[in-house]
Amino acid sequence: MIAGINIYEILTLTSILFFIGLYGFFTRENLITVLLSIELILNASALNFVLINTYLYPDLLQGAIFTIFIIALAAAETALAIAIIINLYKLIYSVEVKDTETMKY
């Protein structure tokens, strides 16, 4: 618990972070930057886990452990996504979103 800060302020912070990430996900034109936005979203939720754990159930460890899992998953997802991006680059020499729009009507 952070002295002088209540849970509402903290949740406000994480919500803002989450929606910034979402905004980035919607607007970015480059696959790598889209991936960056996803990292923001994941961090916002990880932060939520830890802080809610701290504020509401300080004697439990669930939040911390789930954060660890989230970080592991984020690392894994990033690694795989970057592998795909590199492979895509090998194929079409581009990592722009507009070049990946072939699966449509």
Binding site: F25, F26, V34, V97, T100, E101, T102, M103, K104, Y105
Partner: peptide, 17 residues
Amino acid sequence: IKGWQSGKFQDYAMSFV
């Protein structure tokens, strides 16, 4: 309405959200 299937994953995500 076939334009809705634009192939842009970001559009899909926006619709979803």
